[in-house]
Amino acid sequence: MNDTTPDSLIPYDDIVQDALRGVVSRVLRRIQAEGGLPGSHHFYIAFRTRAPGVSIPSHLMERYPDEMTIVIQHRYWDLVVADDHFSIGLSFNQMPATLVIPYDAIVGFVDPAVNFALQFAPKDGEHAPEPPEPEAPPPAPEPDGSSDGSNVVTLDRFRRK
């Protein structure tokens, strides 16, 4: 009797990952249609900054050469949700920026208000960035919007160890 699992000719893992990225798209479409986030919902979205189709300002690319996490909560504008990507306006240290993020670039989606999280594997032919050295997690964004203007946090505290 053979205990090894045969190789599948159907890419089930890729199909499941694409379906879960569709969850992110559907949630963002709902937020776009409703004109904002309901209740205390807010999102941390981590993405690979060098993935095909990502467009972010050069100063953010320099600061986050592999992976970046954005917070969608109080201060965002021009959320546009398309079939294969979304774009959003955010402020970084009081500087407005428009980001374009393909769903294939997303590696994590968290809604801490309801303890919901998704983690994605890199697409075929891509590799995950080396994990950074452990550091203390940053404080959560202030609910009244009185933060330093930075919308970048680490998702490490939400990842499974």
Score class of each variant (00 low, 15 high):
Met1Leu: 09
Met1Pro: 15
Asn2Glu: 10
Asp3Tyr: 13
Asp3Ala: 14
Thr5Ile: 13
Ile10Leu: 11
Ile10Asn: 07
Pro11Asn: 08
Asp13Phe: 10
Asp14Gly: 04
Ile15Ser: 08
Ile15Arg: 12
Gln17Ala: 14
Gln17Phe: 08
Asp18Lys: 04
Ala19Trp: 05
Ala19Lys: 12
Leu20Cys: 15
Arg21Gln: 10
Arg21Ala: 09
Val23Arg: 08
Val24Arg: 03
Val27Gln: 14
Leu28His: 08
Leu28Cys: 12
Arg29Asn: 11
Arg30Ala: 08
Gln32Leu: 06
Ala33Val: 02
Gly35Cys: 07
Gly36Gln: 13
Gly36Thr: 09
Gly36Phe: 06
Gly36Met: 11
Gly39Ala: 09
Gly39Glu: 05
His41Ile: 04
His41Glu: 13
His42Ala: 07
Phe43Cys: 02
Tyr44Asn: 10
Ile45Ser: 05
Ala46Leu: 02
Ala46Asn: 05
Phe47Trp: 09
Phe47Asp: 06
Phe47Ala: 06
Arg48Leu: 13
Thr49Asp: 03
Arg50Pro: 02
Arg50Lys: 09
Arg50Gly: 12
Arg50His: 10
Ala51His: 15
Ala51Glu: 08
Val54Asp: 10
Ser55Glu: 12
Ser55Asp: 14
Ile56Met: 12
Ile56Cys: 04
Ile56Tyr: 03
His59Gly: 00
Arg63Asn: 10
Tyr64Met: 13
Tyr64Val: 02
Pro65Ile: 08
Pro65Lys: 03
Asp66Val: 00
Thr69Met: 06
Ile70Ala: 04
Ile70Trp: 02
Val71Ile: 12
Val71Asp: 11
Val71Ser: 06
His74Glu: 00
Arg75Asp: 11
Tyr76Leu: 01
Trp77Phe: 02
Asp78Pro: 02
Val80Pro: 01
Val80Met: 10
Val80Leu: 08
Val81Trp: 00
Asp83Glu: 07
Asp84His: 01
Gly89Tyr: 03
Leu90Ala: 02
Ser91Leu: 07
Met95Val: 12
Met95Trp: 07
Met95Tyr: 03
Ala97Ile: 14
Val100Phe: 01
Val100Leu: 08
Pro102Gly: 02
Pro102Gln: 04
Pro102Arg: 01
Tyr103Lys: 00
Tyr103Val: 00
Asp104Glu: 10
Ala105Ser: 14
Ala105Pro: 01
Ile106Cys: 06
Gly108Gln: 02
Asp111Tyr: 10
Pro112Asn: 07
Ala113Met: 03
Ala113Ile: 01
Asn115Asp: 15
Asn115Ala: 15
Asn115Ser: 13
Leu118Cys: 09
Gln119Glu: 12
Gln119Met: 11
Phe120Gln: 07
Phe120Pro: 11
Phe120Ser: 05
Ala121Asp: 10
Ala121Asn: 09
Pro122Ser: 02
Gly125Gln: 12
Glu126Asn: 04
His127Pro: 00
His127Arg: 11
Pro129Asn: 00
Glu130Gly: 07
Pro131Met: 04
Pro132Phe: 01
Pro132Trp: 04
Pro132Met: 05
Glu133Tyr: 09
Glu133Arg: 08
Glu135Lys: 12
Pro137Val: 07
Pro139Cys: 13
Pro139Thr: 12
Ala140Gln: 14
Glu142Gln: 14
Glu142Ile: 00
Pro143Thr: 01
Asp144Met: 10
Asp144Leu: 06
Asp144Cys: 15
Asp144His: 15
Ser146Gln: 14
Gly149Arg: 00
Asn151Met: 11
Thr154Glu: 15
Asp156Leu: 10
Asp156Trp: 09
Arg157Val: 10
Phe158His: 13
Arg159Thr: 13
